[in-house]
């Protein structure tokens, strides 16, 4: 296992200690997971379908309880804490907005979680206003959510979770079906959350997105964490990517094809390296 993070002496916000879980006997969905994520970190969880990513994140807000080992989130052992209590701290945005939108209007959709968490009324209306503006949904306030476009529904799903200001935000495949602009918006949203020292966990297939915007990566394969560390270090490791069935980012491919040492995921570094190569020709 590749790891470049110290395990002791930091105050973790999310801690997995030897966690295993199986849906059917004999086949583990996740196995012996050890993991710690600090306050204010932005982390990508990468891996092919069936690697255990979804099972892992469901442990963070207690939808699943570890069958062995334990998970601590914001100082609470998830085994002894209800989903509703954990959900107040952990906002989990699912991949498909159609799996959660149900209210008669966009406004009521955003109110749902706030009411569940018993926010006072003036606080609710303040937060709804904020969310409507923040996610560009103000003009659709009174419309039924299912009449919105795909992109708008995705934004509403985000708004209806981020409105209650959870300390930890988990995004499950946020870039699926999103175009380039929408991805940039998402990246700036993540940056903004990070600047408010929120912890953001992004589960994604989109390795280009992870390489461009997320500093730390956790790579899973067959229910295990096979690497955890600096995104650049991991995403330029050929054997590692192969063993997790991940396709390297194009810049990394380019680094390899140009035999750059060390390979990089950063655009500027590639540009300056290629520049040097070209200068070598002129000299």
């Amino acid at each position: 296992m590749v790891t470049s993070r110290p395990f002791e002496g930091v105050e973790e916000l999310i801690l997995f200690e030897d966690v295993s879980y199986s849906y059917s006997p004999g086949r583990y969905a996740i196995e012996h997971i050890n993991l710690s994520i600090d306050k204010g970190e932005v982390v990508a969880i990468l891996g092919e379908n069936g690697a255990g990513k979804t099972t892992l994140i469901k442990h963070i807000n207690g939808l699943l309880k570890p069958q062995s080992g334990f998970v601590i989130v914001s100082g609470m052992n998830t085994k002894d804490t209800t989903v509703a209590t954990l959900a107040r701290h952990v906002g989990l945005v699912f991949q498909n907005p159609d799996h959660q939108l149900f209210a008669e209007t966009v406004e009521k959709e955003i109110m749902f979680a706030l009411t569940n968490f018993n926010f006072p009324e003036d606080e609710i209306s303040r937060r709804v206003d904020w969310a409507l503006k923040e996610f560009g949904l103000l003009e659709y306030k009174d419309r039924p959510p299912f009449l919105l476009s795909g992109g708008e529904r995705k934004r509403l799903a985000l708004a209806s979770v981020l409105c209650y200001d959870p300390q930890i935000v988990i995004l499950d495949e946020p870039t699926t079906g999103q175009d380039y602009r929408q991805k940039l918006h998402l990246a700036s949203l993540i940056k903004k959350l990070n600047s408010e020292s929120k912890t953001v966990v992004v589960v994604t297939h989109d390795i280009e997105f992870a390489a461009d915007f997320i500093p730390r990566s956790i790579i899973m394969s067959k229910g295990r964490v096979i690497a955890d560390g600096d995104s650049e270090e991991l995403l330029t490791n050929r054997e590692l990517l192969m063993s997790a069935s991940l396709i390297p980012p194009q810049l990394v491919e380019l680094s390899w094809d140009l035999a750059l040492n060390p390979p990089t995921i950063h655009f500027d570094e590639i540009v300056s390296s290629v520049k040097k190569l070209l200068e070598g020709k002129k000299a």
């Binding site: 380039y180 280009e208 491919e253 380019l254 390899w256 655009f267 590639i270 540009v271 290629v274 520049k275």
Partner: peptide, 25 residues
């Protein structure tokens, strides 16, 4: 989403210098 290889090539003007426009690494 313009592929990164295209962006690198354009940033350095390689396409203008060589008259070639690569799409893959």
């Amino acid at each position: 989403g313009i592929p990164k290889v295209v962006q690198v090539t354009k940033a350095l003007g390689i396409n203008k210098m060589t008259g070639k426009c690569p799409l893959t690494s």
